[in-house]
Write a protein that binds this DNA or RNA. Sequence first.
DNA 1: GCCAACGTTGGC
DNA 2: GCCAACGTTGGC
Length: 139
Amino acid sequence: MRYWLFKSEPDTWGWDDQVAKGDAGEEWDGVRNYQARNFMREMTLGDRGFFYHSQKDKAIVGVVEVITEAHPDSKTDDPRWECVDIKAVKPVKTPVTLAQIKDTPALSDMALVRSSRLSVQPVTEQEWTIVCQMAGIEP
DNA sequence: GCCAACGTTGGC
DNA sequence: GCCAACGTTGGC
C-alpha cells in the first residue's frame, strides 16, 4: 500500500464535502496537471491519503482511501485527464499545519514543502507515520 | 493583494 | 526545439 496527499481549496471542495459523500466517495476530478495525473495512475485500491486544505487553512484535516483506480475524468471529454475516486476515512484529531510540517526536520523533503503547487503528491511511509503522530491518529 | 514558482502555449 | 509571454496556484 502506498500513501498520498490530496490538496483542495476548502471553498471549492472541502473535507466536509468529502465526508458528506460517505462510503460512496467522489471523483477527484479537475486535475489538469500531468504529474498529478500520473500519480493517480499509480494508485491502487486501498491506498491511503491525507486530505489537505490549501489557502486559508493550510493544514492536513483528514484521511481518505482510494476506492477506484484511475478512470477518465467525467468532467471533461479530453481523454488525457483521468482521476481516481476517494472516500473519507476519518478526520484528524488535531490538524497538522503547513507551518508545523516546515518546522519538522524529518518532513523537510515532503512534496508539500518542496513542490507546493502540486495538487496530488506521494507521501513516504515514514512521513505518513510522523504526520499521523502529529495529528493524534493511528497510522 | 502581491509575488514567486511553475506549467503551458505559441511564434519563430 | 527553443524561449518569451502568459495564466494559474498558493504561500505570505
